[in-house]
Design a binder for these strands. Structure first.
Lengths: 125, 125
DNA sequence: CAGAATCCTGTGCGATACTG
DNA sequence: CAGTATCGCACAGGATTCTG
């Protein structure tokens, strides 16, 4: 083991409220549920942009995310909004303007993104 | 912005090798590719177990991961092995024994898991 | 501009049965 | 014990068209 064993133990302890009947899947933080929040092909991309590059309009996102269709972007934005990860602000203008931005809940994912990024640079960059 | 802006700037700088033609998706670390490595319904679950709970045999994993089928577990383990995230050690015994463990590459994801876990506890725990 | 509404397709995922 | 081998479906993901 190269990583800090104490930190690992602490995490395992934190997560094991009941010792006996629960599966490992439950005692650790439940990845399937996390996958629902940030899984899929686009959610991490959208979050990354909104977290690190600030508020964007719909078509700004669309242009920045190569390969995504309008429908998919709409879907992902709706899902993210439902999960409280992004906020949607509509301006009563003509032409209509809608701005998307990361909520605090999403902002707090930035540390995770940083770790993910360091890891990526180390092994795939 | 609540989070540390300097760190954010540093990350953006780190990732932008070419400024001009590349999409944001490419200038930041490419989430679609990361999703290929650790995405899907089971990979994070398997990795979490192997990283934080050490080496496991096939059926040990199977028992710990509620709801997974043999076929799926095999698939995910093969994929993870191909990506260099887990190692597979076969013992020439009867009955056969195969042990799976996290590689260093996977071990280095533990910080990301920790951040993910802190976030989960804060918002969903 | 920012979508809604359709329709369509690939494949992620799973159930089941069989094997060295 | 630790797998393969099939089969099949639901659903994520996508192309296209229409609208306030």
């Amino acid at each position: 083991m190269v990583f800090n064993t104490n930190r690992v133990k602490r995490i395992i302890t934190m997560t094991s409220k009941k010792e006996s009947t629960q599966s490992t899947e439950e005692r650790l933080c439940p990845m399937p549920q996390i996958a629902k929040l940030i899984g899929g092909k686009w959610k991490l991309v959208v979050l990354q942009i909104l977290i690190f590059h600030g508020t964007h309009r719909f078509n700004e996102l669309r242009r920045k995310i190569e390969g995504i269709t309008q429908a998919m972007l709409t879907n992902q934005l709706r899902a993210l909004e439902e999960d409280g990860l992004i906020s949607r602000k509509i301006y009563a203008e003509v032409p209509p303007r809608v701005e998307y931005s990361a909520t605090q809940k999403a902002m707090d994912l930035n540390e995770m993104f940083e770790e993910m990024h360091r890891w990526w640079v180390k092994y795939e960059g």
